[in-house]
Amino acid sequence: MKTLKILVILLIGGLAISFFSGMLEGKERNNLFAERPAPYKEKKNASAAREISTIKGYDIGDTATDFSLKNTDGSTTSLKDFKDAKGFVIIFTCNHCPYSVAYEDRIIAIDQKYKNVGYPVIAINPNNPKEYPTDSFEAMKVRAKEKGFTFPYLLDAGQKIYPQYGATKTPHVFLLQKEGKNPIVKYIGAIDDKYQDANEVKNTYLENALQALLSGEPIKQTRSTAIGCRIK
Protein backbone atom coordinates (compact mmCIF):
# COMPACT_ATOMS: atom_id res chain seq x y z
CA MET A 1 0.00 0.00 0.00
CA LYS A 2 2.80 2.35 1.01
CA THR A 3 4.75 1.52 -2.16
CA LEU A 4 1.72 2.34 -4.24
CA LYS A 5 1.35 5.71 -2.51
CA ILE A 6 5.01 6.56 -3.13
CA LEU A 7 4.69 5.51 -6.75
CA VAL A 8 1.62 7.71 -7.23
CA ILE A 9 3.37 10.70 -5.65
CA LEU A 10 6.45 10.19 -7.80
CA LEU A 11 4.24 9.95 -10.89
CA ILE A 12 2.46 13.21 -9.99
CA GLY A 13 5.78 14.85 -9.21
CA GLY A 14 7.21 13.71 -12.51
CA LEU A 15 4.17 15.01 -14.36
CA ALA A 16 4.43 18.35 -12.56
CA ILE A 17 8.12 18.66 -13.45
CA SER A 18 7.54 17.87 -17.09
CA PHE A 19 4.59 20.27 -17.09
CA PHE A 20 6.68 23.09 -15.68
CA SER A 21 9.66 22.46 -17.90
CA GLY A 22 7.26 22.15 -20.82
CA MET A 23 5.95 25.58 -19.98
CA LEU A 24 9.49 26.90 -20.00
CA GLU A 25 10.21 25.19 -23.30
CA GLY A 26 7.10 26.71 -24.84
CA LYS A 27 8.11 30.16 -23.72
CA GLU A 28 11.58 29.79 -25.12
CA ARG A 29 10.26 28.48 -28.37
CA ASN A 30 8.02 31.51 -28.68
CA ASN A 31 11.06 33.69 -28.35
CA LEU A 32 13.05 31.61 -30.79
CA PHE A 33 10.45 32.05 -33.47
CA ALA A 34 9.66 35.63 -32.64
CA GLU A 35 9.05 37.65 -35.74
CA ARG A 36 12.22 39.08 -37.19
CA PRO A 37 12.23 42.84 -37.38
CA ALA A 38 11.30 44.19 -40.80
CA PRO A 39 14.36 45.31 -42.81
CA TYR A 40 13.55 49.01 -42.62
CA LYS A 41 13.27 48.75 -38.86
CA GLU A 42 16.62 46.96 -38.67
CA LYS A 43 18.20 49.74 -40.63
CA LYS A 44 16.70 52.36 -38.34
CA ASN A 45 17.92 50.55 -35.26
CA ALA A 46 21.39 50.19 -36.70
CA SER A 47 21.70 53.90 -37.43
CA ALA A 48 20.41 54.76 -33.96
CA ALA A 49 23.05 52.53 -32.42
CA ARG A 50 25.71 54.10 -34.58
CA GLU A 51 24.70 57.52 -33.33
CA ILE A 52 25.32 56.28 -29.82
CA SER A 53 28.79 55.09 -30.71
CA THR A 54 30.02 58.22 -32.48
CA ILE A 55 30.66 61.13 -30.19
CA LYS A 56 31.19 64.50 -31.77
CA GLY A 57 34.36 66.30 -31.00
CA TYR A 58 37.43 67.73 -32.62
CA ASP A 59 39.06 66.33 -35.66
CA ILE A 60 42.69 66.91 -36.59
CA GLY A 61 42.99 70.46 -37.93
CA ASP A 62 40.06 71.89 -35.95
CA THR A 63 40.49 75.00 -33.82
CA ALA A 64 40.24 74.12 -30.14
CA THR A 65 38.20 76.23 -27.77
CA ASP A 66 39.77 78.22 -24.98
CA PHE A 67 38.36 77.86 -21.48
CA SER A 68 38.54 79.39 -18.09
CA LEU A 69 38.70 76.70 -15.46
CA LYS A 70 39.54 76.53 -11.78
CA ASN A 71 43.06 75.32 -11.02
CA THR A 72 44.00 73.36 -7.89
CA ASP A 73 46.37 76.20 -6.89
CA GLY A 74 43.37 78.50 -6.48
CA SER A 75 43.86 80.44 -9.73
CA THR A 76 41.85 80.27 -12.93
CA THR A 77 43.59 78.99 -16.04
CA SER A 78 42.97 79.79 -19.73
CA LEU A 79 44.99 79.04 -22.85
CA LYS A 80 45.30 82.77 -23.54
CA ASP A 81 47.30 83.14 -20.30
CA PHE A 82 50.20 81.30 -21.96
CA LYS A 83 51.38 84.10 -24.26
CA ASP A 84 54.72 82.48 -25.10
CA ALA A 85 53.46 78.96 -25.63
CA LYS A 86 53.72 77.45 -29.12
CA GLY A 87 51.00 74.99 -28.25
CA PHE A 88 49.53 72.85 -25.49
CA VAL A 89 49.39 69.27 -24.34
CA ILE A 90 45.80 69.07 -23.09
CA ILE A 91 45.29 65.86 -21.10
CA PHE A 92 41.89 64.90 -19.76
CA THR A 93 42.75 62.88 -16.68
CA CYS A 94 41.50 62.32 -13.16
CA ASN A 95 42.19 60.85 -9.74
CA HIS A 96 40.05 57.71 -9.70
CA CYS A 97 41.08 55.99 -12.91
CA PRO A 98 43.96 53.47 -12.59
CA TYR A 99 45.11 54.28 -16.14
CA SER A 100 45.35 57.96 -15.26
CA VAL A 101 47.23 57.18 -12.08
CA ALA A 102 49.62 54.92 -14.01
CA TYR A 103 50.46 57.86 -16.28
CA GLU A 104 50.94 60.57 -13.63
CA ASP A 105 54.74 60.32 -13.57
CA ARG A 106 54.92 60.23 -17.36
CA ILE A 107 52.69 63.33 -17.60
CA ILE A 108 54.98 65.19 -15.20
CA ALA A 109 58.02 64.12 -17.26
CA ILE A 110 56.42 65.32 -20.50
CA ASP A 111 55.54 68.67 -18.93
CA GLN A 112 59.07 69.15 -17.66
CA LYS A 113 60.58 68.21 -20.98
CA TYR A 114 58.28 70.17 -23.30
CA LYS A 115 57.13 73.17 -21.24
CA ASN A 116 60.47 74.90 -21.80
CA VAL A 117 60.27 74.43 -25.56
CA GLY A 118 56.75 75.87 -25.76
CA TYR A 119 54.35 72.99 -25.13
CA PRO A 120 53.13 72.98 -21.52
CA VAL A 121 50.82 70.27 -20.17
CA ILE A 122 47.37 71.34 -19.03
CA ALA A 123 45.49 68.59 -17.19
CA ILE A 124 41.71 68.74 -16.98
CA ASN A 125 39.53 66.51 -14.83
CA PRO A 126 36.32 66.07 -16.86
CA ASN A 127 34.40 63.90 -14.39
CA ASN A 128 31.40 64.90 -12.35
CA PRO A 129 32.51 64.56 -8.70
CA LYS A 130 29.00 63.31 -7.88
CA GLU A 131 29.69 60.26 -10.03
CA TYR A 132 33.23 59.79 -8.73
CA PRO A 133 33.70 61.33 -5.26
CA THR A 134 37.49 60.82 -5.48
CA ASP A 135 37.49 63.23 -8.42
CA SER A 136 36.24 66.17 -6.34
CA PHE A 137 38.07 69.49 -6.47
CA GLU A 138 39.32 68.98 -2.91
CA ALA A 139 40.65 65.52 -3.79
CA MET A 140 42.31 66.99 -6.89
CA LYS A 141 44.15 69.51 -4.72
CA VAL A 142 45.39 66.71 -2.47
CA ARG A 143 46.57 64.61 -5.41
CA ALA A 144 48.29 67.54 -7.16
CA LYS A 145 50.23 68.26 -4.00
CA GLU A 146 51.06 64.61 -3.21
CA LYS A 147 52.45 63.98 -6.69
CA GLY A 148 53.97 67.45 -7.10
CA PHE A 149 52.18 68.21 -10.36
CA THR A 150 54.23 70.75 -12.32
CA PHE A 151 51.25 71.68 -14.53
CA PRO A 152 47.79 73.17 -13.97
CA TYR A 153 45.23 70.58 -12.86
CA LEU A 154 41.81 71.99 -13.72
CA LEU A 155 38.27 70.91 -13.00
CA ASP A 156 35.83 70.99 -15.89
CA ALA A 157 33.12 72.24 -13.53
CA GLY A 158 29.74 71.84 -15.19
CA GLN A 159 31.34 69.54 -17.80
CA LYS A 160 31.14 72.06 -20.63
CA ILE A 161 34.64 71.65 -22.08
CA TYR A 162 35.30 67.93 -22.51
CA PRO A 163 32.31 67.37 -24.85
CA GLN A 164 33.56 70.16 -27.15
CA TYR A 165 36.93 68.46 -27.41
CA GLY A 166 35.27 65.07 -27.78
CA ALA A 167 37.13 63.50 -24.90
CA THR A 168 35.49 60.22 -23.92
CA LYS A 169 37.84 58.74 -21.38
CA THR A 170 40.74 59.40 -19.06
CA PRO A 171 43.53 59.76 -19.96
CA HIS A 172 42.75 61.35 -23.34
CA VAL A 173 45.28 63.66 -24.99
CA PHE A 174 44.70 66.58 -27.38
CA LEU A 175 47.92 68.11 -28.67
CA LEU A 176 47.42 71.67 -29.91
CA GLN A 177 49.70 73.97 -31.88
CA LYS A 178 49.09 77.68 -32.22
CA GLU A 179 48.65 78.98 -35.75
CA GLY A 180 48.49 82.73 -35.28
CA LYS A 181 46.31 82.97 -32.22
CA ASN A 182 44.29 79.83 -32.86
CA PRO A 183 45.18 76.58 -31.12
CA ILE A 184 44.84 73.88 -33.80
CA VAL A 185 44.34 70.19 -32.96
CA LYS A 186 47.34 68.19 -34.18
CA TYR A 187 47.12 64.87 -32.39
CA ILE A 188 44.35 63.03 -30.49
CA GLY A 189 44.68 59.90 -28.43
CA ALA A 190 46.96 58.12 -26.01
CA ILE A 191 50.24 59.05 -24.33
CA ASP A 192 51.87 55.77 -25.33
CA ASP A 193 50.91 52.13 -25.79
CA LYS A 194 51.65 50.48 -22.45
CA TYR A 195 50.15 51.90 -19.31
CA GLN A 196 51.56 49.34 -16.87
CA ASP A 197 55.21 49.96 -17.52
CA ALA A 198 56.88 52.99 -19.06
CA ASN A 199 59.95 50.87 -19.80
CA GLU A 200 58.07 48.44 -22.04
CA VAL A 201 56.42 51.02 -24.26
CA LYS A 202 56.71 50.27 -27.99
CA ASN A 203 55.20 53.50 -29.33
CA THR A 204 55.49 56.87 -27.62
CA TYR A 205 52.69 58.42 -29.67
CA LEU A 206 52.49 61.77 -27.87
CA GLU A 207 56.23 62.38 -27.76
CA ASN A 208 56.58 61.40 -31.42
CA ALA A 209 53.93 63.99 -32.27
CA LEU A 210 55.62 66.64 -30.10
CA GLN A 211 58.98 65.93 -31.71
CA ALA A 212 57.45 66.25 -35.17
CA LEU A 213 55.90 69.63 -34.26
CA LEU A 214 59.19 70.87 -32.85
CA SER A 215 61.13 69.88 -35.96
CA GLY A 216 58.42 71.16 -38.30
CA GLU A 217 57.73 67.75 -39.79
CA PRO A 218 54.29 66.22 -40.36
CA ILE A 219 53.06 64.00 -37.53
CA LYS A 220 53.15 60.39 -38.76
CA GLN A 221 50.42 59.10 -36.47
CA THR A 222 47.84 61.76 -35.61
CA ARG A 223 45.49 59.44 -33.71
CA SER A 224 45.87 56.50 -31.37
CA THR A 225 43.64 54.48 -29.09
CA ALA A 226 44.16 53.12 -25.62
CA ILE A 227 41.95 51.79 -22.88
CA GLY A 228 40.66 54.40 -20.48
CA CYS A 229 37.94 55.11 -17.95
CA ARG A 230 34.76 56.45 -19.49
CA ILE A 231 34.11 60.07 -18.50
CA LYS A 232 30.96 60.37 -16.42
Partner: peptide, 10 residues
Protein backbone atom coordinates in the same frame (compact mmCIF):
# COMPACT_ATOMS: atom_id res chain seq x y z
CA UNK B 1 36.94 44.43 -31.15
CA UNK B 2 35.46 47.31 -33.13
CA UNK B 3 36.89 49.99 -35.38
CA UNK B 4 34.72 52.61 -33.68
CA UNK B 5 35.97 51.81 -30.20
CA UNK B 6 37.95 54.66 -28.62
CA UNK B 7 39.06 52.47 -25.71
CA UNK B 8 36.70 53.76 -23.02
CA UNK B 9 35.08 51.13 -20.82
CA UNK B 10 32.43 49.92 -20.26
Amino acid sequence: VDQHWDGAIP
